[in-house]
């Protein structure tokens, strides 16, 4: 007799736990306000990216098309993956008559970047920073190799002192 009572208790208890579980899912289906889906491309305008978001490395230019990169290669050394390549040349400075290292291209391989922020930390002149763009998909791999300094851009005066 005891066995039968235990058996019934077991069945009832088991069914109770199942109903408890169904209550949880039942709550959510009856409360459509709880839906958390964000429909991404549609909500692009309202997307709020945080200030510190690490999307890609960018080099801000001011209105005179000048940047703050001296070509010191600190970022290139700090980068663990060889993401940054700085191509520079010695160009004759006509005032002093001396040849001086000048940055030609700040090449940034987005495909190799792990967004570790070490280059930004290393930069002594705050010439580069982390951009908020995150839509990096392109059709060709070569498009992921970017030149950060804009064509014709110059070093901002007073940065080097």
């Amino acid at each position: 007799m005891k066995a039968i009572i235990n058996y019934i208790k077991e069945v009832v208890g088991g069914v109770k736990t199942l109903i408890n579980g169904m209550k949880v899912t039942g709550y959510y289906i009856s409360h459509p306000k709880e839906i958390i889906t964000q429909q991404y491309p549609e909500n692009r305008d309202t997307l709020n990216m945080v200030d510190r978001f690490r999307g890609e490395v960018i080099m801000p230019h001011d209105e005179n098309n000048e940047h703050a990169c001296t070509g010191c290669q600190a970022c290139e050394i700090a980068c663990p993956n060889g993401t940054i390549e700085i191509i520079q040349d010695r160009i004759l400075n006509e005032e002093t008559g001396k040849k001086k290292k000048t940055i030609l291209k700040h090449v940034y391989h987005l495909s190799m970047c792990t967004m570790c922020n070490l280059c930004i930390e290393a930069c002594p002149t705050d010439a580069i920073e982390m951009g908020k763009g995150f839509e990096h998909a392109v059709f060709d791999r070569s498009q992921l190799t970017k030149v950060l300094n804009k064509p014709g851009s110059k070093l901002r005066a007073g940065v080097e002192e």
């Binding site: 959510y28 289906i29 709880e34 839906i35 958390i36 889906t37 429909q39």
Partner: peptide, 10 residues
């Protein structure tokens, strides 16, 4: 749809 609404999706 039902599965999505159970899971707080659309």
């Amino acid at each position: 749809k039902v599965c999505a609404f159970f899971q707080q999706r659309l």
